[in-house]
Design a protein around this nucleic acid. Structure first.
Lengths: 154, 154
DNA sequence: ATAGGTGCAAACTGTTTGCAATCGT
DNA sequence: ACGATTGCAAACAGTTTGCACCTAT
């Protein structure tokens, strides 16, 4: 964990940015919630525990910066709220999301199932794929047992 | 075209809603721009030609209503703007998007390539898929020839 | 008359920005 | 001292909502 912070610090410094206390606190929150797809507001509230004086704008600026440096990934499920995830060190991992329409949970699956499709796209549509995202809406295993009372969204 | 409006009218009426002139004008705009992924503001401006007195709120309400009835699909590429598309009559078609990072164009491909994956999800993750979306970011055939000068986003 | 629908303006939400104060080197 | 960074508040964009009016039954 310290090693990963150190690594991020170097990434920042190599681009002329500093790892300020606020930025470090933000990164730590992201590290501690790596699987959670936090919104900026979520991050803000968690960071306040570590650095109570921080402002929401700083969190936004930090997340934006980290996103520009491809240290975090900014994503966006259809609800108009940006969510942020630390990118995993190795490989441009493509994660896919299982979004439960009942409880709102977002699980991740990491397999890269789409390589064959990308090849097909290149061939049939002459489209050069740089990245992709794949989200499934449905019912997660946790909710599948409960009675299906409220399956209509909102 | 008139037939499709008639069909939508019946869908509305079967749920107790009316096809008011404003709603009809909105639907016509969607029909005339079926491939365009219009934002609410786009729709608003186009509808004003047909029904100048219409308010933006009505457009939002209409799009929301049509979305609830699954007549249009509300979608959202990462830019914080909701976009709307008429759903194609037949089948719950899953369209996938080819988003060009150079020119911003959004092409659609209609094939349903993911059925095998959905089966695998059910088996391996016990996730019941209701819908999915798949977007590819990359370079479209139109831009691929031009020199690759400006590949950095924003 | 009554319920649904509309236009307008105000409210709200998530995000960005201007700016003066502050920090680290 | 200098440029980068911060906190705050105000600005912003897209969307939603409250409400009085309207319009078909």
């Amino acid at each position: 964990m310290e090693a990963r912070i150190e690594h991020i610090k170097q990434q920042l410094q190599s681009q002329g940015y500093k790892l300020t206390p606020q930025r470090e606190a933000t990164v730590r929150v992201l590290l501690e919630n790596e699987e959670d797809h936090l919104s900026a507001e979520d991050v803000f509230m968690l960071v306040k525990d570590k650095a109570p004086e921080i402002g929401l704008a700083t969190v936004y600026r930090t997340l934006e910066l980290l996103s520009d440096l491809h240290i975090v990934e900014k994503m966006n499920f259809g609800d108009g709220v940006a969510r942020y995830d630390l990118r995993h060190e190795s490989s441009k991992h493509h994660h896919h999301h299982l979004i439960c329409v009942v409880c709102g949970s977002v699980d991740e699956i990491m397999d890269d199932w789409l390589l064959p499709l990308e090849e097909r796209l290149a061939k049939e549509y002459h489209f050069k794929v740089l990245d992709h995202r794949l989200d499934f809406q449905g019912v997660c295993w946790r909710c599948k047992d409960k009675e299906p009372e409220d399956m209509n969204k909102k």
